[in-house]
Design a protein around this nucleic acid. Sequence first.
DNA 1: TTGCCTCGAGATCA
DNA 2: CTCGAGGCAA
Length: 674
Amino acid sequence: MTNNISHTIESLRQRINDHNYRYYVLDDPRISDAEYDTLFAELQSLEKQHPEFITTDSPTQRVGAVPLKEFAEVQHDIPMLSLENAFTEEDVIAFNHRVQERLDRVQDIEYNCEPKLDGLAVSLRYEHGLLVRAATRGDGATGEDITENIRTIKMVPLRLQGKEYPPILEVRGEVYMPKAGFIALNKKAEIKGEKIFANPRNAAAGSLRQLNPRITAARPLAIFCYGVGKVEGGVLPSKHSDILAVLKTWGFVVNPEIEVVTGIAGCLDFYKKIGKKRPNLPYEIDGVVYKVNNLQDQERLGFVSRAPRWALAHKFPAEQVQTVIESVEFQVGRTGALTPVARLRPVAVSGVTVSNATLHNMDEVKRKDIHIGDIVIIQRAGDVIPEVVSVVIEKRPAITEKIKLPEHCPVCHSVVEQIEDEAIARCSGGLFCPAQRKEAVKHFASRRAMDIEGLGDKLVEQLIDNDLISNPADLYKLKLDELAGLERMAEKSAQNLLEALEKSKKTTLARFLYALGIREVGEATAKNLANFFGELEPLFSATVESLQEISDVGPIVAQHIVTFFSEDHNRDVIKKLLAVGVHWETVKKSASALVLAGKTFVLTGTLVSLSRDEAKDKLEALGAKVAGSVSAKTSYVVVGADAGSKLKKAKELGVAVLEEEDFLQFLQVIAKKN
DNA sequence: TTGCCTCGAGATCA
DNA sequence: CTCGAGGCAA
């Protein structure tokens, strides 16, 4: 009897899944919405009577019961890469040239062309046909676990169709909000007097960041799948277009506009065609993507740093609008650099309101001949940073004001210095300048530096303006009663800040060096310095010559470091910081301190996700040696595709062998230790 | 650079 | 209720 019910339930689920599949993937529903709802209600009621038969992949179980506390981290087995962008036909033609050259082929290349959705990239992991995890792209290597939210999207199969899918399958796609859904959602919000979303992309992004999946479920989200990540235990077709086809049979929705074309001419035709269709498409796109269709060719082409050589995003021209430069302010950075920033009459550009745009430096201002009062064309370059493209010269008002580099710092009135042949002008006030002091403290407290939680911009401004501190070391002398009473700072917040300061005292040498804000010493260089010296003292007496032995340190960086440590003021602040208890665990000196010191690696075969050189760089950065041939002294052999004799030798000698995936994971783990 | 979400806590008003 | 900090994404 129970067996019977479990059967009925299962068959109901299968029928609902099939109808879903017909509806979303085949776009060919066989029953009305009302009939579908009836089936669904039937399943719900049966499951209610027999909760023991509820499974997580049941179509009734899309919305989880309890809100999350936070999103967990997810490591991507295969990194989620970004795409190289092209803005002109020439860029596209050049791309095709590079592809043909690298493949040593004169015939036209077959490309898979797809619209580029304006949404968020996600990765969906299926194990034995069940959705087990969904993650955001994050930085490409680590994303966030948004499984509960992704499950609420009806276009996402919780269970795959058919039987032929690999036991482990990661599918990548773009989550987006259709235009119609976005408009409807905002209309509803408006009626309720709630805040409306600025654009569909932000609405989609915001929806996925909900801790409570019930809210996500009420948002009209959709997805198009466009590729695979990790695949284990199955064989996929050898052409990208065929992979998309097989994804469809498993229940994934693939964009219907996708086409396979021959040669670059076909790509450009596709671009034009989609461009024409763009206003009528039910979702927003910002370009098209071309991918070399043959996977073997893709593998041969490989990657450049973070982007595949076999794919290109051909962007539509950025939306351009006109507005007025109302004024120009000069901002003073941490190093005293004066940056002209245009205050614009606010305008809507590609979905956001823009009111500020950096003009970078005076050379830029001169080249574009920008005056205050000018009508200018602005766009969001690379979709993010607002940019003043040009002045509409025929609209120039009778009276405009030339933009002048101030002779004196707008904050501290020290003389502004412009070094010849350099674009950047600097306030000469140094740490006498409150602006520079503020920036220095902000940098010191920032997450990647000393990570002082709760010490944000506003607070630093207040501290400096009220003369409570003048350098980072003073932070540690702050008293509760000094803090409490500042704006938005009552006793509780003040206490929290003191605790955060106390906590920050325990740090690492690399963080500390980075926090000091030495010119040209970013996170990477700081790490190199810390690894090389292992302690702080040698840096005080390091010379320009000796510093250049460190990787990535050239004469200029070396000079900056020497200058920094030769200044009394800097030495004094460092001394004070150490005196109040800033400390770190000493790490052993130089290369021998690195985790892979003394280990020898041999690389063989073709690696997919990074080049030989990149792999070598990474290993060497961790202290390993990379050798050409395998011997008994070899610690590991990393084998890519088509590995030959070296792999054989490794096996003979019993040397540890790492496949590419293992190797990537290995690197991730090791990098953390370092 | 902007917009979004979340959290904690201060400010305001009943 | 409102604001700031912090994190994330493009």
